[in-house]
């Protein structure tokens, strides 16, 4: 594992910054989009960090049923329209 991925705070910041920067055009991303942020790491290690961020409610999953995508929690149109309160 690279030093970057090993440093949880730095890794999370990199992911959040990347998603925030892109947020004007896109709110949902494939797991592969995150691989580019950590070029020295194996996909499996990156996936573990990204999934931890979902667990910590920084990110959230979006699933079509066949494919899963990731986004910042609450980002995008659908998040707002899905509230059931």
């Amino acid at each position: 594992m690279s030093d970057l991925l090993n440093d949880t705070a730095a890794a999370e910041k990199l992911v959040v910054d990347f998603l925030t920067k892109k947020s004007k055009n896109k709110s949902k991303f494939y797991i592969k989009d995150f691989y580019k942020l950590f070029p020295d790491d194996k996909p499996r290690m990156i996936k573990k960090v990204i999934n931890k961020m979902v667990e910590h409610e920084i990110l959230e999953f979006w699933s079509s049923g066949s494919t899963t995508m990731y986004g910042l929690k609450g980002a995008g149109k659908q998040a707002a329209s899905e509230g059931e309160d």
């Binding site: 494939y30 996936k47 999953f61 066949s66 494919t67």
Partner: peptide
Amino acid sequence: HRPAFPYK
């Protein structure tokens, strides 16, 4: 339980 792959 945690998506890891390009697809199913």
